[in-house]
């Protein structure tokens, strides 16, 4: 399948069962909201206890440690529930591509049994991105500094130094962006593998994703960038609506945006927009991942080739 047709198919699948996928996306978004509220609630509760027992240092330390542990437990539970909802979309859309008739309950049961694996795979992917970000940042900075020193460039004074610093910043950002995009493409189907494959084949989804996406990195990057172009109008529209809601609020209540209530209103509005984005675009991304995975399986394993 071509880059454009992969996106076309994903959109067509999304359109065909719009309400079903939107329902799962809503659950995923609500679990993320729940994470945020539970975290806030726990912080308030522990803060209140800490303020009452401010003279007991031992208890304060215990409360800090307990708070971190509880927040981690709450976070991993709620986020994993959110991931499960996304994985259910992946599985259902993959079954659609295979023209198989698995029920929604069975699909959900399958991914729910993989909660821990899905959470650890997602954590691994984000950790890899973080390490790549830090690693490439350090390497580019060191190389740039060494080359500058070699030619005796003074970075802090003179027009030449400033020009070189600007070029360096551009190169630095480009390298980080390129490296992250490369890793994103190579790990693009990591969680889809866990959501759709059964048996022993999924012990190392990141390795499997790395193998499958070999020779297809540029295609996947093209898919990601093109989908970004398609998503842009809706994102812009959401941004514009948010901006106008805030202006209306500001106009109606005459609170300056730096005001405490204004700040919280702005913050909650921003959070709502982000949740709305997850709500609308999560299904598209998940279906796109499944479509790309199906395409890779066809190219690398020939799953679409049957004589009978």
């Amino acid at each position: 399948m071509s880059v454009g047709n992969l996106i076309n198919i994903a959109i067509q699948i999304y359109r065909a069962q719009f309400t079903l996928y939107l329902g799962w996306a809503m659950r995923a978004a609500l679990w993320l909201v729940a994470t945020f509220w539970l975290w806030s609630l726990m912080s308030l509760l522990i803060g209140a206890i800490a303020s009452v027992t401010s003279d007991q240092i031992g208890l304060q330390v215990f409360l800090i440690v307990a708070s971190i542990v509880i927040q981690l437990i709450i976070g991993s539970y709620c986020i994993s529930r959110s991931i499960i909802c996304g994985a259910t979309i992946s599985r259902l859309s993959y079954q659609t591509l295979l023209q198989s008739s698995e029920t929604i309950q069975l699909a959900h049961q399958f991914v729910r049994a993989r909660r821990r694996q899905l959470l650890s795979a997602t954590t691994n992917v984000y950790f890899t991105f973080f390490m790549v970000y830090i690693g490439v940042g350090i390497i580019v900075s060191v190389v740039f500094y060494l080359i500058g020193n070699m030619f005796g460039v003074n970075f802090w004074s003179g027009q030449l130094g400033q020009t070189i610093v600007v070029i360096g910043i551009v190169l630095f950002l480009f390298s980080i962006y390129a490296a992250l995009l490369f890793c994103f493409a190579r790990l693009f189907v990591c969680d889809t593998i866990l959501a759709v494959e059964d048996g022993v084949a999924v012990k190392k989804p990141d390795n499997m994703s790395w193998k499958l996406t070999q020779d297809n990195t540029l295609r996947i990057i093209a898919v990601v960038l093109t989908t970004g172009v398609i998503m842009m109008p809706s994102l812009l529209l959401l941004q514009v609506i948010t901006h106008y809601i805030f202006l209306l609020y500001d106009g109606a209540f005459h609170y300056p945006s730096s005001d405490f209530i204004g700040f919280w209103f702005n913050f909650l509005l921003g959070l709502t927009v982000r949740i709305l984005c997850i709500f609308v675009f999560l299904p598209l991304w998940k279906i796109l991942q499944s479509t790309v995975y199906y395409d890779l399986k066809a190219r690398k394993e020939g799953i679409d080739l049957q004589l009978i």
């Binding site: 454009g4 992969l6 996106i7 076309n8 093109t226």
Partner: peptide
Amino acid sequence: LAGIGNRAYALL
């Protein structure tokens, strides 16, 4: 039909 995917890719 070309579809939004192909058209957006060509435009890019």
